[in-house]
Every structure is written in C-alpha cells, then in structure tokens.
C-alpha cells in the first residue's frame, strides 16, 4: 500500500514536471516564435521586394527554412493551452479569448501556413525572385488571416 502510494506520488511528480508549462511560459515562447517569424518575413520583404539588389540566395533559403520549421513546430498544440488568452509573456498576450471557439478554423490556417512555407522553401531554392515574391505574398496573406481572426486589435 505504502509502496503504491509512493509510486503514485512520484508518478504525479514526474508528470507535473514534464507537463509543467506555466501559462506565462507558453505565452512567452509563442510570442518569441512569432517574433522570429516576423524577423524572417521582414528579411525576405527587404531582399526580395524593397531592395532586390541586396538579394542573397542563401539567406533567403535560410529564412524560408526557418519559417517552415516554425510552422511545423506543433505550436498550436503546445503553446495555445487553456488560459493562455490571458497573462503576460514578454508583454501582455494578444490572443483573443474566442480562439478557443475557433480552434478548427485556426488549425486550417496553420495547415495553410505549413503548405505555403514549404512551397516557399522550394521556390527559394530555384532563386527565381519573381516566383519567390509571389509565393511570399501568399504566405503574408496567410499570416494576416490568422491575425485578423484571433489576435487582439491594439
């Protein structure tokens, strides 16, 4: 009996350590993830659209790879837990409370994010600036559709 209790308690302890992901951690990492996405989209915009003379094929490939990796990172499952519509990460979260009613729609958008970033990787490899630009437009519209849906307007 004693042994069983100890066993249960230690299981609980291990589980709580593994699952310990306080709300604020999730928010902070979520904000960091999107900030890194924004860093990379900003770089692509700069090199592909605003200043094509600064285009570095390798940097754009790296940016596309990063965006794709982050899109694939399972963030919806791990960084959008219950309660994360309130709290402060690097700054107060801008996740709308109705996210929890719109999870299916958001999942669809995230699937599109994965598809568009994967496609961006492919065109980045070709070095065809016009094709990168047009694919980048589709990606930007995908980011925006999620912001319009579940991000609080400042």
């Amino acid at each position: 009996m004693k042994l069983k209790c100890a066993w249960c308690l230690s299981c609980l302890f291990v589980a709580s350590v593994v699952m310990a992901n306080p709300i604020e951690d999730q928010i902070r990492i979520r904000q960091s993830t999107y900030a890194v996405m924004g860093w990379n989209t900003g770089k692509i915009k700069n090199q592909i659209v605003d200043h094509p003379e600064t285009y570095h094929k390798d940097q754009i490939i790296a940016a596309a790879n990063t965006l794709s990796a982050l899109a694939h990172s399972n963030l919806l499952e791990e960084l959008y837990g219950p309660g994360t519509d309130q709290g402060t990460g690097w700054k107060p979260t801008r996740l709308k409370a109705d996210y929890f009613q719109k999870q299916d729609e958001v999942k669809e958008i995230n699937t599109r994010l994965i598809k568009e970033t994967d496609e961006l990787k492919v065109v980045a490899e070709t070095g065809d600036v016009a094709a990168i630009k047009s694919q980048f437009g589709k990606l930007g519209a995908t980011c925006k559709s999620c912001h319009d849906l579940i991000r609080v307007r400042e």
Binding site: G38, T41, G42, I44, F136, G140, C143, K144, H147, E154
Partner: peptide
C-alpha cells in the same frame, strides 16, 4: 502589420507606438 508591411514613416517612431497606431 508585423509581417512585411510598414508605412513610409514607420522608422521615425518606436515599434510599440507603431503597433498602437496600427
């Protein structure tokens, strides 16, 4: 827009102020 679009005078002010203005 936090993605890839800024107004022509964006660089004159702080990002956080620009976010509010957006």
């Amino acid at each position: 827009d936090d993605i890839a679009f800024e107004g022509p005078l964006f660089h004159l002010i702080d990002k956080s102020l620009s976010d509010r203005i957006s």
